[in-house]
Lab assay of single mutants.
Amino acid sequence: QETIEVEDEEEARRVAKELRKKGYEVKIERRGNKWHVHRT
């Protein structure tokens, strides 16, 4: 599992979309004022 930390929701969604295109399962999680995209 890989976690990518980004600054805002828009970027989290963009990253998640790219990963989904490559066939990964992803989960977006908010952590305080950061966003984490988990590749599962």
Rank of each mutant, 00 (worst) to 15 (best):
K17E: 08
E11Q: 15
A16Q: 07
E9G: 11
A12Q: 02
A16R: 04
R30L: 10
E5H: 10
E5F: 12
G32C: 05
V37L: 05
H36P: 00
H38L: 09
R31T: 05
A16I: 02
T40V: 01
E7W: 11
A16G: 06
R31S: 12
K34E: 06
R30F: 13
H38I: 03
E9H: 15
W35S: 01
D8L: 15
E10W: 13
N33M: 02
V37T: 02
E7V: 15
R30P: 08
N33H: 13
R39D: 01
K21L: 11
G23T: 03
H36F: 02
K17R: 10
E18R: 06
R39I: 06
I28R: 06
R13C: 01
W35D: 00
V15C: 13
L19C: 06
H38G: 12
T3W: 06
K22M: 05
I28F: 07
D8G: 15
E5W: 11
Q1G: 11
V26W: 06
E18T: 15
Q1H: 02
E18W: 03
R14K: 11
E5R: 11
E9T: 03
Q1M: 01
E2M: 03
L19Y: 01
R20E: 07
D8M: 15
I4L: 04
H38Y: 07
R30H: 06
H36M: 12
K21E: 14
K27G: 08
R20W: 04
E29C: 07
E2P: 10
V6T: 05
E10S: 12
E7F: 03
K17T: 14
V6D: 00
E7A: 15
A16D: 06
V26P: 12
K21C: 12
V6A: 09
T40W: 14
Q1K: 15
G23P: 03
V26G: 13
V6E: 00
Y24H: 13
V15W: 08
R31V: 10
I28W: 09
E29L: 06
K17M: 00
K17V: 06
A12W: 00
Y24V: 09
V15P: 00
E5A: 15
V15S: 06
T3G: 09
K34C: 03
E7D: 15
N33E: 13
H38R: 10
Y24D: 05
K34W: 04
E18I: 01
K27I: 02
E11P: 11
K27A: 12
R14W: 03
Y24P: 04
W35T: 07
K21A: 13
K17G: 12
E10H: 09
D8S: 14
L19T: 04
Y24I: 10
E10L: 12
Q1P: 00
Q1E: 07
I4F: 08
G32P: 08
W35M: 02
E9R: 14
R31N: 15
E11G: 14
A12L: 02
A12R: 00
W35E: 02
R30V: 07
V15T: 09
K27L: 07
A12T: 01
Q1S: 05
E10M: 15
L19W: 13
V15L: 08
E5I: 13
K17H: 11
R14Y: 03
E25T: 14
Q1R: 11
E2C: 06
K17W: 05
G23K: 01
K27Q: 12
R14L: 03
V6Q: 07
E9Y: 12
I4R: 05
E10R: 13
T3D: 02
I4M: 15
E2L: 03
T3L: 15
V26R: 01
R39W: 09
H36K: 11
I28V: 09
R39A: 13
E11F: 06
T3R: 14
E29R: 07
E2F: 09
E25M: 09
H36S: 04
N33K: 13
R14V: 07
V6W: 14
W35R: 01
K27R: 12
A16V: 04
K34S: 05
K34P: 00
T3K: 14
A16M: 01
E10I: 11
N33D: 06
E2V: 12
N33P: 04
I28N: 03
A12C: 03
I28G: 01
R13Q: 08
D8Q: 15
H38V: 09
V15H: 11
L19E: 10
E25K: 06
E10G: 14
N33V: 06
E9Q: 13
G23A: 09
V6S: 04
I4V: 02
Y24C: 08
T40G: 07
V26M: 05
A16N: 01
W35V: 05
E11R: 14
E18C: 06
G23S: 06
K21S: 09
R14A: 05
A12F: 00
K22Q: 08
E7C: 08
E9F: 10
R39L: 04
V37W: 00
E2R: 12
W35G: 00
K17P: 10
R30S: 06
E11W: 11
Y24K: 06
R13K: 06
R31L: 08
V6K: 05
V26F: 00
Q1W: 10
R13N: 05
E7P: 15
E11V: 13
D8N: 15
K27F: 01
H36N: 13
V26A: 12
N33W: 04
N33L: 10
R31Y: 03
G23W: 03
A12D: 00
K21Q: 11
W35A: 04
V37Q: 00
D8C: 14
R20D: 07
E10C: 10
I28S: 08
R13D: 01
K21V: 11
E29A: 06
V26H: 01
T3N: 10
I28Q: 11
E11S: 12
K22R: 10
K17D: 03
G23C: 03
I4G: 01
R31I: 14
H36V: 10
H38A: 11
R14M: 04
R30G: 11
E2N: 14
V37K: 00
E29Q: 11
E25D: 15
E18S: 09
R13M: 05
K22A: 07
K34G: 11
K34T: 08
E25Q: 09
R20I: 02
R14Q: 08
A12V: 02
E25S: 14
V15A: 08
R39M: 02
H38N: 07
Y24S: 07
R30W: 06
E29G: 10
K22L: 04
V6I: 10
E9L: 11
G32M: 06
R13P: 00
R13W: 02
G23Q: 05
V37F: 00
A16E: 10
T3C: 13
N33C: 11
A12P: 00
T3E: 03
G23D: 15
E29T: 13
R14T: 02
A16P: 00
L19D: 08
E7S: 10
E5M: 14
I28E: 09
D8Y: 08
H38T: 13
Q1I: 15
V6F: 15
I28L: 12
E9I: 14
D8H: 15
R14S: 01
K22P: 03
E2W: 05
T3M: 15
V15Y: 02
E25I: 07
L19A: 03
K34Q: 03
E18G: 11
E25R: 08
E11C: 07
V26S: 12
G32E: 08
D8P: 14
R31W: 07
Q1T: 02
E7R: 15
H38M: 11
K34H: 09
E2S: 11
A16L: 02
K34V: 07
E7Q: 15
L19K: 02
H36T: 08
K21W: 04
W35Q: 04
W35L: 04
A16T: 01
E10Q: 14
K21M: 11
L19S: 09
D8T: 15
Y24E: 14
I4E: 01
V15D: 01
R39P: 13
E25Y: 09
E9N: 08
I4Q: 02
A12Y: 02
T3Y: 13
